[in-house]
Computed example of a mutant assay.
Amino acid sequence: MSEHIFHGKLIPDSDWYDWRWQFRNRITTVAELTESIDLTEQEKQEITQCLGKFRMAITPYYASLMDPTDRNCPIRMQAVPSNLENRILPCEMADPLNEEGESPVPGIVHRYPDRVLFLVTHQCSMYCRHCTRRRLVGEEDMVISDKEIDTAVEYIRSKEEIRDVLISGGDPLTMSDEKLEHILKKLRSIEHVEIIRIGTRVPVVLPMRITLELTNMLRNYEPIWINTHFNHPKEITKDSMDACARLVDAGIPLGNQSVLLRGINDSTDIMKDLLLKLVKNRIRPYYLYQCDLSQGLGHFRTRVETGIEMIHHLQGYISGYAIPKFVIDAPGGGGKIPVNPEYIISIDDNEVVMRNYKGDLYTYPQPPDIRYEKEFHLNAREVCDENDNLHNP
């Protein structure tokens, strides 16, 4: 039996590992925050000003990972508001991905032909400072109504091309098991829905939410895939990895989506450490996102070249399955666009000239043009016949 200190009090395991206790005791005010980290009076004023526009909530668990004195702590930077969030650049938008413009019914975003995004809540256990949906998430702890669920499900049922549904929000795993199961059961009643995915940051910021009861319930609705959101190696803890292991052991494949964040993970060494720890724990790196153009995120965005160079310096030095796809979610609703290092130097009818991860050049000969395919096969047949004659006189 161990104890944990939170706001100067000893918290027993029975409370600390109760996800509902964690949720009830989230840090939401400057006064509560000062009990976890050192803040100057100016910082308190700036955070208060920021909270007038964007909400804060930090679980006691995630707060325990913050360095109380280091203002550049990568955990702290993801959780604690900054006065830089009040600076709205001309290019920034409330809805940079045009999700509202591609929402045929409330809660549904239908951008790609065979899949939809199903937003079931505005509530998260922690409100990340780099959140793309900050226009919605944290404004109110809204969970979708039964009527809205029925409307969304009927839309999915009416579109037979939809085979994949991504449940997101907010964070779907902040809902009760019963509410989440209600949604899963309705989706599983649709014959053409093959895959259900859940996007969640709960294993990172509230790992005690991944209970045996939850994993047993999810197993009833396979195939389910879960994508989580680790951004930094310091988030890889025993508690977070135990939570992920419970999901994987229940037969649920885990992927990870990271956001490239200035001053947090925009170093190849840091990213390499994160990726290797993820795959060691059976979590497949999926996407590395360029930070979106949501309002107040300019200080988090890196240059695009940073991500390209990072992927270039990872390629060949760690296993390919450990390298995520670097993407920009195109402003205005263009979807995810892969942005990769340039490995093809030239390509023509005869050959492809390539550069490998070390910078060395290699040539790959093109196959014969289709116009010469018949001649190619005839010549190949003649060679085979000649060899047969030599070996079988």
Rank of each mutant, 00 (worst) to 15 (best):
Q295T: 13
N340A: 04
I347N: 12
V327A: 04
N72Q: 09
F6S: 02
T302H: 11
E99V: 10
F326S: 00
R129L: 07
Y127S: 04
R282H: 07
E191H: 12
R157C: 08
R282N: 09
V109H: 05
I264C: 00
G255Q: 03
R134H: 12
Q315C: 06
Q257P: 06
Q290P: 09
I5R: 13
L254M: 11
G333Y: 07
N392L: 15
T151I: 13
R55N: 14
E85K: 04
Q42D: 07
G333P: 04
S346D: 15
I167R: 05
R284W: 12
L288E: 08
T237N: 07
V143C: 14
Q290H: 12
T237Y: 03
G335R: 03
P223D: 09
A330Q: 04
D164N: 10
R135W: 12
L119S: 06
G251Y: 07
R111N: 08
S240H: 06
P367A: 00
I210M: 03
G138D: 03
E305W: 14
G101H: 11
N216V: 12
K336P: 01
V105M: 09
V352G: 10
Q315M: 08
I167Y: 01
N356G: 09
F23P: 00
D239A: 13
R303M: 15
L247C: 05
V80K: 03
K234M: 11
M77R: 11
I58D: 08
I75A: 01
I308Y: 14
Q295N: 10
H4I: 11
P285W: 01
P331V: 02
E35V: 02
T48Y: 13
L10Q: 07
M208H: 10
E373Y: 05
G170E: 01
I328L: 15
L65F: 09
I283S: 01
H130Q: 04
L276Q: 10
N387E: 15
K159S: 07
Y289E: 02
M208N: 03
E305F: 13
I27D: 01
M142I: 15
A94D: 12
I318F: 02
L97Q: 00
Y221T: 08
V137Y: 00
I318G: 02
V105P: 04
G138E: 03
Y343N: 14
K53S: 14
M310T: 02
E41R: 13
M56Q: 05
P81V: 12
I47N: 06
D171L: 08
T237L: 03
D369M: 04
E235Y: 05
V383A: 14
K186R: 13
L84F: 10
E35R: 07
I323M: 02
I370H: 05
V143K: 09
Y127R: 04
L119I: 13
V109Q: 06
K147T: 15
L136D: 02
R371H: 04
E154P: 04
G335L: 00
R284V: 09
D239V: 08
H7N: 10
F6W: 12
G334M: 00
G298H: 05
Q45A: 15
K325T: 01
Y61V: 02
L51V: 11
P96A: 14
P96M: 10
V352E: 08
V204Q: 02
N387I: 11
I252T: 06
L89F: 13
G170R: 01
F376P: 02
N340V: 04
L314K: 00
S346C: 12
I210G: 01
A243R: 02
V339Y: 06
C128A: 03
P233C: 09
N98F: 15
I156V: 14
N281I: 07
